[in-house]
Write a protein that binds this DNA or RNA. Structure first.
Lengths: 233, 233
DNA sequence: CGAATCCTTGATGCTAATCAATGAGGGTGG
DNA sequence: CCACCCTCATTGATTAGCATCAAGGATTCG
């Protein structure tokens, strides 16, 4: 994954530290829960392959999906830094994770300021994505939200090297989209049908694909992702 | 502010570095904009006193307030780390800011890993607050959202040492609340009236005060803030 | 073949948006 | 000092967007 154009180049000693920092790999099945709200995980993970999502639940079961996780994303940082996980993470597809020891995070901060900075970069980027999602859920109409979300996921996936030739199969159900947008399942379905009818997306066999990104961006009123090189811890 | 029970103790050399890191103080009037979306600010700030809010705008003027900033909060980190501000910040009251040089952030990371860790802690905490706000806007009803928001602001302010004897005057208009909750001004007013009638909050002269925190928490279905010691950069 | 999961569609009702208007301070300039 | 304006809060009437209810179809899997 490192050679991908999206990722910054690392120093040899940084790579060496990361290799030592790494504890092992974890394979998670589709639908399994990786991290649970309220738990104290001794680990921190980097996604090597697959898709997942972060979410929170209300006591009565209402679910809000906060963001999606894709290869290169760090998960469990909040739990490592603040003690207790405040959200859960579930696998959308089979997931391979690189496992890190939470306790070694302090060592990373003292010995590798460049990597520490990268971690802050990732945290900052997550915040940026959340800001945009909150804007969407709070102020955009149903169709704008749906268009924004799909364009956003599509762009992120493309930037991370997923899919082939501008096409990405997004492994998601309409229930996930509904829980991300803060809409009901039924209304989400009706909204997505409109996008399909306008020919901007296609929906097939348990997933979705963006057909016309430009039109999707236009509907959402969003300008698209604009990230330079990013770190990969 | 440092002696407050909410903040962690620092080492003398850390304090010394922070003092050198500090560039000066900035006084901002109520209603003024501190940081603008799209700009490249050479500075990073810590709030010394006053209230403000972070927000984003859609091209047609719809506004979403993302979070509130209070004494001890760091603002502009996103801009410093990722280059361009992706949100704006406006002063809700008169604001005094401690100004830091963006360029010295790298030096901080190399020489003071403890402080670097603190900055990540703060970023992580911001993410946690955003997660909770997103859950609120996406999945809670109007009255739950309003109750949650006011309880949340109240608790944060109390934890930061604002107000006296469990009472805090929150310097906010109903338009701000509406733009935070993703509701219209009219509906927000009607919802707040219900909270006033139930005797859980009071609304007076351009602000709001929580009267019965327990009942407010009950209405919102939220369990309250639970932070231990926090850093203050 | 029955069960489970996911998608789809129509009917109905409620929550919240929009429209419209009024009132209560506070500040400013004549 | 008062008339005017501006901001903010408030309230009623109407409309629209979305939720909820209900049911059925398609596909996969054991």
């Amino acid at each position: 994954m490192r050679p991908l154009p999206a990722f910054r180049a690392f120093e040899p000693e940084e790579l060496e530290f990361i290799a030592r920092f790494k504890r092992g790999e974890l394979v998670v099945d589709r639908g399994a829960t990786v991290l649970v709200e309220g738990s104290h995980s001794p680990h921190l993970y980097t996604v090597l392959s697959g898709w997942g999502f972060r979410f929170k639940l209300l006591p009565d079961g209402r679910r809000q999906i906060l963001n999606y996780v894709m290869p290169g994303d760090l998960i469990g940082l909040q739990g490592s830094i603040m003690g207790e996980m405040q959200h859960s993470v579930e696998a959308l597809s089979g997931l391979i994770l690189c496992v890190f020891e939470r306790d070694k995070l302090l060592e990373l901060y003292s010995k590798h300021p460049g990597l520490a900075y990268d971690i802050t970069w990732l945290a900052s980027r997550e915040e940026r994505m959340l800001d945009e999602n909150l804007l969407s859920v709070g102020r955009r109409s149903a169709i704008e939200r749906a268009a924004y979300l799909l364009a956003f996921i599509h762009e992120r996936a493309r930037a991370g090297g997923l899919g082939t030739r501008s096409r990405v199969a997004i492994p998601i159900t309409q229930q996930h989209i509904a829980d991300t947008l803060g809409l009901s399942l039924v209304h989400t379905n009706k909204t997505l049908r409109k996008l399909v009818q306008r020919g901007v997306i296609e929906w097939r066999d348990g997933g979705c694909e963006v057909v016309d990104l430009q039109k999707l961006l236009y509907i959402s009123g969003w300008e698209g992702l604009d990230e330079g090189k990013r770190p990969l811890v």
